Amino acid sequence: MKRLVMVLFLVGVVAASRGLIPWQLVFAPLLGLLIWSIGIASFGSLNRGAAHIPDGPPEAVDPDERVTYTCTGCGAEVLLLVRGSAMPPRHCGEKMHERREVRSTRA
């Protein structure tokens, strides 16, 4: 595939240098291949970046303990009911900060 692209590019350069075709017809397909390869690489990184998905079954959180995660960027707060992984969730591109509150046992 790479050889074919290189041969076609060289043929296009020769034809454009002799004035048979405009230079835009030589560089437009190369620009298209560049955009296509960047797009394919971007989708590939989405597939490989799934490390945040938990491996095992979810674990129930202790009912006497309230676990919340807070985003320092915007102030969003998440109450954790079931823990899927040990990693904290992300919000605004940053890891959220964990806060634990133990429920009082006084009656």
Rank of each mutant, 00 (worst) to 15 (best):
R3L: 08
L4R: 07
V5C: 05
V5F: 09
V5K: 09
M6L: 06
M6D: 05
V7N: 13
F9R: 05
V13Q: 03
V13L: 15
V13W: 02
A15Q: 10
A16G: 08
R18M: 08
R18Y: 13
G19V: 04
L20W: 14
I21G: 02
P22Q: 08
L25Q: 12
L30E: 03
L31D: 01
G32L: 14
L34C: 11
W36Y: 12
G39Q: 06
F43H: 06
S45N: 04
L46V: 12
N47D: 00
R48F: 06
P54W: 04
D55E: 12
D55Y: 13
D55T: 12
V61C: 01
V61P: 06
D62N: 15
E65W: 00
T70Q: 03
C71N: 03
T72F: 00
V78A: 12
V78W: 03
L80R: 12
L81E: 10
V82E: 07
G84C: 03
S85A: 15
P89N: 11
H91Y: 06
G93P: 02
G93W: 14
H97K: 05
R99S: 15
R100E: 07
E101G: 00
E101H: 12
V102N: 01
V102M: 06
T105E: 15
R106P: 00
R106L: 13
R106S: 14
A107K: 11
A107E: 12
